[in-house]
Amino acid sequence: MSYIRFENLHKSFGKNEVLKDINLEIEKNQLVTLLGPSGCGKSTLLRCLAGLEDVTSGKVYLDGKDITNVNPKDRDIGMVFQQYSLFPNMTVAQNVAFGLRMKKVPKNEADEKVMKMLENVGLADKAGSYPAQLSGGQQQRAALARAIVTEPKVLLLDEPLSAIDALLRRSLQIEIRRIQREINMTAIFVTHDQDEAMVMSDVIHLMNKGKIEQSANPTDMYTKPVSKFAASFIGHYNILPAEVFGKLVGEDLCCRDVVFRPEVVEISASPTNEEGRYYWQGKIIDSLPHGNILRYAVLSGDTQIDVDVLFRSSMMFDVGQELFLAIKKENCILL
């Protein structure tokens, strides 16, 4: 049986239905991401698990117990919020000790745990500092320490890195993942950033408009989107109506949309012919370097298709150049 389970969960704010019949199971010791655009209900789902929002109907189970009506303070769940959730009137050490104090852990034991935890997140020298004296990254490390020092049953992270600049974000992602693995903690991470979800998660639950759109591990999520929404949200998919694509390659396709990633398209200046591929022609209208790849915008008929190639001098085409495109049939996802 799964560790965390949402059963027919509904949540409305007035007339606005934010969560529509969510059924979701989460395994122990995994880091699971709720991914989706803003307003998709991912944060609300997390807050329902935390008990910070009442559910309209449905049940929430944690570790085999129905916690739907349990007060948040009694749920034994740790949570890291967006920035500025540290108590500004307390030092870092006092912040981390707060939960232990609430649990009435003896002072000596609590002090020891706090110091150990601060060492683990690399803030041992900041124990006596106030939150306003820390950088954004340090604040979130302290918030993480505060959330896990009480050894909760599950750790919730509600977009904890959204206010942190890109470079630092990457190192914090890795650090959160390391700590989660070290102490074998079940964690649920909410983000709207698909790269972040890819880097961190065991399982990604993609949400859209109050529903779970797709649940998969990062690789499957990237390579096998099950819907147009999933394709457009994960990676930079080319999404074409089947009719349009069918016309281009001269084949009837019995589906609504065809999606494929820019890097699976092969381009060449002269026609090729191999089995198991679709072929068509186009004209380069633009090229943009993105780090180590070069993205061409190719116009085929009335449709623009993006094509990624590795950035090397041997594969350079000019804007305006006519060329031949090919794609392996198995790389085309028919939806």
Binding site: D74, I77, F81, Y84, S85, F87, F98, G99, A147
Partner: peptide, 14 residues
């Protein structure tokens, strides 16, 4: 940020 600080305190058992 009162709502967030209260949420945080509550999650820590207060």
């Amino acid at each position: 940020n009162m709502p967030m600080l209260l949420d945080a305190a509550e999650m820590l058992g207060a």
